[in-house]
Amino acid sequence: MKKLINAPDRVVDEALAGMAAAHSDLIRVEPPNIVVRKDAPRRGKVGVISGGGSGHEPMHGGFVGLGMLDAACPGAVFTSPVPDQMQAATKAVDGGAGVLHIVKNYTGDIMNFDLAAQLAEAEGIQVKSVVIADDVAVKDSLYTAGRRGVGGTVLAEKIVGGCAESGANLDTVTAMCQRVQDNVRSMGMALTSCTLPSVGKPTFDLGDDEMEIGIGIHGEPGRSRMKIATADQIVEMLMTPILEDLPFKSGDRVLAFVNGMGGTPLIELYVVYNAVASMLKGKGITVARNLVGSYITSLDMAGCSISLLKLDDEMTRFWDAPVHTPALRWGL
């Protein structure tokens, strides 16, 4: 393993200290390891927080700031944060209008956020939660933990952040988050495994000529392993299940999000985006907005994910609204 680290068990703390030093104009980092918007709490504004294991940077800490998250709770690498963090974050951002928890659908995240919401409510803070579960690679059935929360989370955090910034109340902000969840679908693939700093070797073995379709953001295996294909073929393999699931139809206006897994260069993501855009055009679906880059990653994994969100005017407006965070900035 070759990594830019000092010690595996100090990676998260040192990265957070680095973030705080680099972005002191936007965020502050407080114990017990929470990233808080510098001017939080904002009186009368609904607080929006999220959290999850580290290793997916810039998600979630990189999305803390004006127009997006009020706080983020990073756990150990690929391990959900503990309730103390979400409880502290909830208290730190509560401006009296309540707090929304955006939770990715993983067993640990659900349980820890659930415990935290109970603790915060016991202290008199109104908390609502929306679970993001957009990964079509997982069969949603009684026999699984349900679909994973992946790329759709980034889009939800931006749109919901814009909604909260507009002064909407907790019910409205919660409904907006649910609306994004209901209209977004994603799927990812890996060219290589990721390597956890604490483990030191790749999580799974993938041959030089193989890829994993339907990969999760923690290296969880996907739908199938197969021989490597061209970018156009891979896009087809990811887009077809996404398009069929919602389903997306001719005449729809969408936000197309091509995300890098951490180890794939932007030039390849644009090759992927090119194929996504032309496939959507061929189906009569309008790409009204897009995002291309590595925003929800899996450490050093090479690969990509594609997310499509069916937009309406309100979602589009909140997507366009000003945002100023370490990782996303526009409209200012």
Binding site: G75, A76, S80, V82, P83, G108, M111, N112, D114, L115
Partner: peptide, 12 residues
């Protein structure tokens, strides 16, 4: 354990 483990095993 709830405050330090994380994941699913912490709450459980």
């Amino acid at each position: 354990l709830i405050s330090t483990v994380g994941g699913a095993s912490g709450p459980l």
